[in-house]
Simulated assay, not measured.
Amino acid sequence: MALNTHFSRALAKQRGMSYWGWLAIIAVFGFGLTVVSKMGPAYVDAHFVEEGLHSLAQNSGVREMSNTQIKRELDRFFTINNVRGEPTDSVKIIRGADSTLVSINYELRQPLFQNVDVVMKFNKQLNTAKPELCCEPLVDLEQFRKRDDY
Rank of each mutant, 00 (worst) to 15 (best):
Val91Gly: 07
Lys146Ala: 09
Gly21Tyr: 12
Ala129Pro: 03
Leu133Met: 09
Val44Thr: 15
Glu51His: 11
Lys71Asn: 14
Asn105Trp: 01
Glu142Phe: 12
Ser99Val: 04
Glu73Gly: 07
Leu74Asn: 02
Val91Cys: 06
Ala24Cys: 11
Ile93Trp: 01
Ile93Lys: 00
Thr68Arg: 11
Pro131Glu: 02
Thr100Glu: 04
Asn105Met: 04
Leu23Val: 14
Arg72Tyr: 15
Val102Ser: 09
Thr5Phe: 03
Gly21Phe: 11
Ala27Cys: 06
Gly30Gln: 10
Arg63Met: 05
Pro41Asp: 00
Phe7Lys: 09
Asp98Glu: 14
Asp89Gln: 15
Pro41Ser: 01
Ala10Trp: 10
Val102Phe: 13
Trp20Arg: 15
Pro41Leu: 00
Leu101Ile: 10
Arg72Trp: 14
Leu11Cys: 06
Glu51Gly: 09
Asp148Trp: 13
Glu136Ile: 01
Met17Leu: 12
Ser8Leu: 09
Phe113Ala: 04
Trp20Lys: 15
Ile80Gly: 00
Arg145Lys: 10
Ala97Ile: 08
Val83Leu: 06
Arg147Trp: 02
Pro137Asp: 11
Ala24Phe: 07
Ile26Phe: 15
Pro111Ser: 13
Leu33Val: 12
Ile104Trp: 01
Glu73Thr: 08
Ile93Gly: 00
Phe113Glu: 10
Arg147Gly: 03
Gly96Gln: 12
Gly85Trp: 06
Met65Arg: 05
Thr128Tyr: 05
Cys134Gln: 01
His6Val: 06
Gln58His: 06
Phe122Asn: 11
Lys130Pro: 02
Val44Glu: 15
Leu138Val: 04
Ala129Trp: 05
Val36Pro: 05
Phe113Cys: 09
Leu74Arg: 02
Leu11Asp: 10
Pro137Arg: 09
Leu3Ser: 04
Ser55Glu: 02
Met65His: 03
Lys71Thr: 15
Val62Asp: 04
Val83Ser: 00
Gln125Ile: 07
Lys71Gln: 14
Arg15His: 13
Asp149Gly: 02
Phe122Thr: 13
